[in-house]
Design a protein around this nucleic acid. Structure first.
Lengths: 228, 228
DNA sequence: CATTCTCCTTGACCTAAGTCAAGGAACGCG
DNA sequence: CGCGTTCCTTGACTTAGGTCAAGGAGAATG
């Protein structure tokens, strides 16, 4: 059931600084949709007739192999746009999107949104920045997958979370270990084993989704020269 | 030695369809630079004070691990823009760029170029399309690295080249085998071995940089369900 | 509170692909 | 045209990490 969105657009970074006139136009464009845990937002190959912004909840974008293994490309939280690639490249969605928890998204239909950008270069500049940042993130993901072994990827990710959460010594996972494995290009078993080994070496302690970073030096070293 | 560029901008896809006024402005912005084989265009971490367009030659963009292994992110040919990510995200270059053969590039300084876009939404739309397409390519690269084994990656790449070169049954590598290995996230030894195996099974025949695709069916299958 | 999920962990095993080392082929240079 | 350098190929070996299988812990449900 599509609903009219609440007036939260102003708090979305992408629309930040937009005039209230444009915000009104956007508000009229947007269609609000709700999803329950596990539900797909779109599938790889679906026509890219618009993009989404997360209002609340969490969405994973991922690829699946023929044997059913899954690789998460990115996890999106509130305020982040999903699927703009399909809109601007004029192609079908290149990956799947599914929600990890009950979520609310806003949908912006392609054509109307494109018309809006054409009129407002500042919106275009914002989008360029968003896409560029995502590109940079892919750069890191490829580096991690190809040049680092699993322990290094885990260490990197923990340090990244510490940075993001603004706490040098303790991080909270926002996704399950299984999903984390899929994000890091490995499987739960391997993640589990390495996590144990890291704990045994005094690098971290794990308790549920709470992880204490005991040895930042060591983690830093591990994240670069992958040897555990 | 920077030189004024020749009037080839109109033939660059990114600037295609731009008015001659804007083309003149761009021409005045651009600085032509020449590189000899192996030379770096920029290094990871360098300030992103502008971006480049390939006029002739070939440029690889790549990451390097602490142990010296290299992963190529993309190979750019004539007409393609390099390094826009740094410009629009306002960050240093997130990877290295080096030329694979004697090359000529045009450099566009950041600030002037940004001013130009702000005035011309159609240029912004073109850039959005370019970045989106690159994003989609990364999507494929991550999928290949994480969800496919090396034989599958090779098969995919050969089929991709066949598509690109418009010849179903014969492709020509434009880079050395060693560089190809680095692009596919493996090493020359492994590439070599698998190529031999594929030849033994009648999928392909290899002679230098010329590869004949004998069994498209088989390659297609291999590219999906990676079993050789 | 017991039951059933779902998720996580550990063990034994196996295999894809990386390392090290040695020849060969091809290419550019003097 | 011969020489050296760079690139490619093949072989023997090692290993990171995936697979399969079996518990165990925690959360959710009736």
């Amino acid at each position: 059931m599509p609903l009219k969105p609440p007036v939260i657009l102003a708090s979305v970074p992408l629309f930040n600084g937009l005039g209230s006139h444009h915000l009104d136009l956007l508000t009229n464009l947007a269609i609000q949709k709700s999803y329950k845990k596990g539900e797909f937002v779109f599938s790889e190959g679906d026509p890219g007739d618009g993009f989404y912004i997360v209002v609340e909840g969490q969405v994973k974008v991922f690829k699946t192999s023929s044997e059913g293994k899954e690789q998460i490309l990115h996890i999106f939280g509130p305020g982040e746009p999903i699927g703009e690639v399909a809109v601007f490249a004029g192609i079908p969605f290149p990956a799947n999107a599914a929600v990890l928890a009950k979520s609310v998204l806003l949908f912006f239909p392609r054509d109307a949104f494109i018309r809006l950008i054409a009129k407002d270069p500042s919106l275009a500049m914002k989008l360029l920045a968003v896409l560029s940042t995502r590109l940079k993130q892919f750069t890191v993901q490829v580096e991690n997958l190809s040049l680092k072994e699993v322990p290094g990827r885990i260490a990197s990710h923990l340090l990244f979370l510490a940075e993001e959460q603004g706490n040098r010594h303790r991080v909270t996972l926002t996704i399950s270990k299984g999903q984390l494995a899929s994000l890091l290009g490995t499987i739960p078993e391997t993640l589990s084993r390495i996590q144990s080994k890291m704990a045994a070496q005094g690098l971290i302690t794990v308790s549920g989704r709470e992880i204490a970073l005991l040895d930042l030096e060591g983690l830093e070293r591990l994240s670069e020269t992958g040897k555990l």
